[in-house]
Design a protein around this nucleic acid. Structure first.
Length: 267
DNA sequence: ATGGCCATCGCGGATGGA
């Protein structure tokens, strides 16, 4: 099965590009971030025409996430249970049958704006709430994907100008501490399970020809649980939609997970 | 370079994004 995540920076503006991308990349599951629309404006019919069932968790103007799947997703949960939040940032569901079912968590992590700001403090609290919840989710759902726009880089490899960005938003030790604390729960960065091109990024600033000059950061991630890790076949960033007219500033990330075979007992 | 671009709301320019 293939799973993808994409921050579309307004689904109203980007819907034609999402439909084009799904036609060319018929993934099983796609999670979207930054819908920037309320649920009554969610284009469920257009997506259904394209072969996708959808669950949206939106709000006017800001944030908003959705879970799209070719087959029905079950046990939909919105936001982080136990963490009160005015903002629509997380949607979860279970897809696939029996032994091959996967718990998918699609998330739009807070931006944080600037270290020391109120928004940064909110980001830290949100990250604590997420980790506390994901710890329990991994027990309930060993086959779990945590994917979305993390707004955090792992290390210098994820940043076009590591010196210039040192201690700046998305690159601070505090943010990376929380990202690594998620990893410590038993999750792996699927992208780095494979050899990747140098200077691989998932976001490029609209300003100053950031994409053309490849001045970007890798802030969109797909983390896989230990049970799924040996089944990951590939993970790629698809830069193609970033070349569109009026693109999102983010590119989609896609992971392929092999089915259970039942034929080769381990050890 | 104390910025550049884009989307939203709403009709000018502030706010948020990253």
């Amino acid at each position: 099965m293939k799973f993808a995540t994409w921050n579309v920076n307004s689904l109203s503006v980007r819907l034609p590009q999402v439909l084009d991308w799904l036609a060319a990349n018929p993934v099983d599951v796609l999670v979207l971030q930054e819908l920037k629309l309320s649920d009554d404006k969610f284009p469920a019919e257009a997506l259904a025409q394209a072969g996708y069932l959808s669950h949206s968790f939106g709000q006017k103007t800001y944030n908003g996430v959705a879970l799209l799947s070719r087959t029905a997703a079950t046990d939909i949960v919105k936001n982080i249970p136990g963490f009160d939040d005015e903002m629509a940032r997380v949607i979860s569901g279970t897809v696939g049958e029996g032994d091959n079912s996967v718990r998918v968590v699609g998330a739009y992590f807070p931006n944080g704006q600037e270290p020391g700001s109120d928004k940064f403090e909110y980001k830290m609290e949100w990250l604590k709430g997420l980790r506390s919840w994901i710890k329990d989710e991994l027990v309930a759902h060993p086959r779990l994907l945590l994917m979305g726009d993390y707004n955090i880089t792992f290390d210098d490899l994820d940043v076009w100008d590591p010196e210039g960005m040192r201690d700046q938003i998305h690159c601070t030790d505090e943010e990376r501490y929380h990202l690594n604390a998620l990893i410590a729960l038993g999750l792996s960065d699927s992208y780095r399970l494979f050899a990747q091109p140098p200077k691989s990024y998932s976001w490029w600033d609209y300003r100053d020809a950031g994409f053309r000059r490849n001045r970007g950061m890798r802030i969109d991630h797909i983390l896989v649980s230990n049970a799924l890790k040996p089944l990951v076949k590939s993970c790629v960033i698809d830069k193609t939609p970033r070349k569109n007219e009026r693109p999102s500033d983010h590119a989609p990330v896609v992971v392929e997970i092999a089915n259970q075979t039942h034929s080769s007992p381990s050890s």
